[in-house]
Amino acid sequence: MELFGGSTGWFAGFYDEYLGFVSFIIRRWDQVIEYTFNHFSLVLTVMFFSLVLWISVGLLISRYEKLANTAFGIGNILFVIPSISLFGIFITIPMLGLGRTSAALALILYAMMPMVRNVYRGIKSVEWPIIEAGRGMGMSPLQILFQIQIPMAWPVIFAGIRVTVVMITGIATVATYIGERNLGRFIHHGIARESADMIIAGAVLVSIIAVLLDFILGKIEFKITSPGLRREQDQN
């Protein structure tokens, strides 16, 4: 720590004590990049499949009310299962084993609840008179879906996407225990080696990313909400 006047200066003491993780990050920069990249590529893969799958399921159950209870039942059960168990169960299935497929599948299942619930809630929040007026003016069911229900539900759906992205980013860290080389690995190895710098580096990095994602998606959420729908949100 020559940069700060050797180990005698007060700042160096403070630095060693509390900010050691910063020099850790600088030292292991290449690894940080690699882990971050792996982290995001996993989250993106999961989100791609989740969007396609769970938005469809959400739309489906908002139309076929009977399926809704089944879907929410499954989603609730999945939610009670700890993330580490879900990862663990998948890797013991021979076809999947250790690796990305198991990690991605488990995370996609986790995404079900927040995504499906918000799509359903959003679609159902469109009040009856608006649908009735749309029908009465001669909109086809598809036009009602794409011009009324989805645009009106979009803020709620997007809020679900935001929650899911943040949640998946967080849970993905746990996938390090089934072989994913992502930001969770610093925490994983840090605990094993009892290295405070490593643990804090991992925790801080992944926290910053999660908070940042939440913040950015929140801004986007506001931007894409029709001004005509914003009033109700202001009141909350």
């Binding site: 993330s83 943040v166 980013t169 967080g170 849970i171 860290t173 746990v174 969770g184 925490i187 840090g190 605990i191 405070a196 643990i199 804090i200 991992g202 925790a203 801080v204 992944v206 926290s207 999660a210 908070v211 939440d214």
Partner: peptide, 17 residues
């Protein structure tokens, strides 16, 4: 909100040191 946004593994780990 931060308590929820920050990944659970990070929250658990951060107190360990």
């Amino acid at each position: 909100n931060m308590g929820q946004t920050i990944p659970p593994l990070a929250v658990i780990a951060i107190f360990f040191p």
